[in-house]
């Protein structure tokens, strides 16, 4: 392992260091956080040759321009920001996504605006090296906690990572011709988000319940890692419950006082006072994390056993994919050794 660095030449809209969520501090008001789209997060790491939980960069809607003075092996998954690669010899071309890419010393990567999805993950072989705070390297912007100084990256920031010895001093660009098909990664899909009923569900009139499950909602621009603000038909509770602060979870759909739903994401506070009408199932949270402002979504109510089945099915798919990726890595290094 050799310390290496990356430099942010131009900051994106909101790029943060993300890794695993903080699971054990929710009773102290600490949002779980972590990579919003955990499927893209795990896949990017595996593609870069890492264990699946190392710290990565998560870009939102508009990516960064990054210099790699010491070279790196990176993998990009999630939203498609049409990244470009500029090599030291001044040649430039589209940076391949969904596969490991060897960047020679002095390369520059340039990410643009997302043409699909909302969040791009850039994993770096060796993992981004920031301090562990409360058990995680993830950035919690609202609380100025973790990641790189608790904030989004800006031009001039320099981050460290540990370049694996095997790939030090690479002077040649390389990307294998195999890749993970983008269709297998979660992204905005026309399918409805599946959900379970929440405590306030029965407080909706039959008409409003039907509206919630049949009408599309649009994602508003005021959305962030805490939650996606939705607009569409206004819903009303005929039984207003006690407005006390009660536990929530990523995926919880709250009904705001103006009748619009708020879909909580990774950085949502662990408790909240708005009525909870539904909870998006765990298997669909990576899709929810890729919703961009303007996207249209629908909700579909499912039974608990379907949610349980779906998360296991997703896990099996990921296991198959990670063994495939490991096999391909092995084949690559075997070929390189010959």
């Amino acid at each position: 392992m050799k310390p290496a660095r990356l430099q942010i030449l131009r900051g994106g809209l909101q790029t943060t260091v993300q890794a695993t969520p903080r699971l054990e501090y929710r009773h102290l008001g600490v949002a779980p956080g972590g990579a919003a789209d955990c499927v893209s997060f795990h896949q990017a790491n595996l593609l870069a040759g890492n264990a699946e939980h190392l710290a990565v960069l998560e870009m939102t809607l508009l990516g960064d321009e990054i210099a790699w003075p010491d070279g790196a092996v990176i993998a990009v998954t999630g939203a498609d920001m049409r990244p470009e690669l500029l090599l030291p010899d001044a040649s430039a071309f589209a940076l391949p996504q969904g596969r490991p890419v060897v960047l020679p010393c002095g390369s520059v990567t340039r990410f643009g605006a997302a043409v699909s999805g909302c969040r791009s993950i850039v994993a770096v072989a060796g993992g981004i090296d920031v301090p562990v705070v409360l058990g995680s390297r993830s950035t919690l912007i609202r609380s100025c906690l973790g990641g790189y100084s608790g904030r989004a990256l800006q031009a001039g920031d320099e981050l460290q990572f540990r370049l694996p010895a095997a790939i030090c001093g690479l002077s040649r660009y390389f990307a294998p011709d195999w890749y993970v098909r983008p269709e297998t990664l979660p992204r905005t899909s026309p399918q409805p988000l599946r959900c379970l009923s929440g405590a306030a569900w029965s407080g909706l009139s039959q008409g409003d319940a039907g509206t919630f499950l049949s009408q599309p909602f649009r994602v508003r621009t005021e959305s962030d890692r805490m939650g996606a603000r939705l607009e569409g038909p206004r819903l009303q509770l005929h039984r207003a419950g006690e407005q006390t602060s009660e536990p929530t979870t990523p995926g919880t759909v709250q009904l705001l006082p103006d009748g619009s739903p708020l879909l909580l994401l990774a950085d949502a506070a662990p408790t909240g006072g708005y009525p909870q009408i539904a909870h998006v199932i765990t298997a669909d949270l990576p899709v929810a994390a890729q919703l961009s402002p303007g996207d249209s979504i629908e909700f579909q109510m499912v039974q608990l056993h379907e949610a349980e089945l779906e998360i296991r099915r997703q896990q099996q798919g990921q296991r198959r994919m990670s063994s495939m990726i490991r096999l391909m890595h092995k084949a690559c290094s075997a070929a390189a050794g010959q």
Partner: peptide, 28 residues
């Protein structure tokens, strides 16, 4: 109302505390 079969999940309504689902990854 038709949503009685949409109020998914198990719940032990009778007991104190009452158990219900907070999504598929938490119990309330």
């Amino acid at each position: 109302m038709a949503d009685s079969d949409l109020i998914t999940a198990f719940s032990f309504e009778a007991g104190d505390p009452k158990f219900s689902c907070l999504g598929d990854a938490a119990i309330l």
